[in-house]
Nucleic acid binder design. Structure first.
Lengths: 221, 221
DNA sequence: CGGGATATTGACTCTTATCAATGCCCGTGG
DNA sequence: CCACGGGCATTGATAAGAGTCAATATCCCG
């Protein structure tokens, strides 16, 4: 049981170093770049590859016919995304900032996996980590109020940034709103509220000083 | 690629038939029963097993310290649940109705998986299907209004019940509300609204006739 | 330095939550 | 078999939180 987490990060390394001539289970990825707001893949497009973020930030989102959008995740360097239960992507992936990724053919990963059981176990682990994150986000969307959502968001961004007291937000308010199930105006007001309470300090719209992480954590539930 | 879905259901069969003496990759499960509202496992309890529903309905939920609850899924016969990214369950599982399940040691599954790569691939597929469902639910919680949520819920229940025009709801209004991120009063009002519009007919609180599935689908988005 | 996109702030509305009263099943026991 | 009781569910009145629309303000980026 204790070995489960350990596997989660080893896949990225394995793929990093992969060279076709090295071993039977090696998988070669191809590097790709995307400009801001460019589409890595679209919803309902064939899901032939999975991706690893090298640099930049990627958002995964779904759209309703009338344009309402829900962002399910932001992916930062080291994250993998694009795993799908069937042959079509059921969400789209776009570059929030200029992005570099490595694309791996899903077919090749599975082929390599039939040689090495641990590679498939790594894929399983990555997917289970994604599921855990998504379930946590369900609780946020279903049961937390606006201030709690924004607080939780800032804490999450902080964690990804390595707990530095200054968080750089890669995305505009509109993306934050669509991630948190709010409007951009409400996100803005909650930032103002947190500023008011002395929990954060804003330096421009994108740079946030977390002055009191304990209080933020108390709010973020 | 087309083989991915096919694997999803084969795991259940493989486990059903499993007998320790039959093959190296067989996995033996143990049958368990739970009365209404009994706990199959609790949040933050060690995650030693995964489960398959034999009969009844199971709810997966997370609680906030102040008692707010979010149900992430209802599991019906044939579904498997209890997959976790780490060693502890990050949600609890409870019987909505009297329930029979088969419990499989996670450790045994992985051990069997090291012999048979396809078993781990089946587990991967089940997890990806769960992820897809959860992302769909994110869109519902983040961006749909009360009427759309209830309509989508009824359509989902209909699908599980095999598209029979009469849906039997196994769970009380409170559980529906906690699944849809609403209050039980709002769920009740939306049922009344759908009844008003001639889209459904109620026969007691738990039996719903879907009179116009097309209109329901238009609402459920 | 200027201009367009992005963000903030304000006034008002609307959906859903909250609080409260009533009604309806269903199972139980007389 | 019927009456009773207790959970569930429905319905109503009101309030609160977030959304909408609109007017600045600010920040980058060229």
């Amino acid at each position: 049981m204790l070995t489960r987490m350990a596997h989660a990060s080893s896949l990225a390394n394995r793929l990093d170093l992969a060279q076709p001539q090295r071993s039977k289970s090696a998988v070669l990825g191809i590097a790709m770049s995307f400009g801001r707001d460019m589409e890595v893949y679209a919803e309902s497009e064939p899901a032939s590859h999975v991706y690893k973020v090298v640099s930049g930030v990627v958002r995964i989102s779904k759209l309703l016919p009338d344009g309402r959008r829900q962002i399910s995740a932001f992916h930062t360097p080291g994250d993998m995304f694009g795993f799908e239960a069937d042959d079509l992507h059921n969400a789209s992936a776009e570059a929030v900032t200029p992005v570099k990724v490595i694309a791996y053919k899903w077919h090749s990963l599975l082929a390599a996996g039939s040689q090495s059981a641990s590679l498939v176990r790594d894929l399983l682990n990555l997917t289970m980590v994604g599921l855990r994150h998504t379930q946590e986000h369900l609780l946020l969307l279903g049961r937390k109020n606006a201030l709690e959502r924004v607080s939780a968001f800032l804490l999450d961004m902080d964690k990804r940034g390595g707990f530095c007291p200054v968080v750089e937000l890669a995305m505009p308010r509109h993306d934050i709103a669509d991630y948190l199930g709010l409007t951009l105006e409400t996100v803005s007001r909650m930032f103002a509220e947190l500023k008011e309470r002395g929990v954060i300090k804003l330096e421009g719209a994108r740079r946030v000083h977390l002055l009191d992480k304990d209080r933020l954590a108390a709010l973020g539930a």
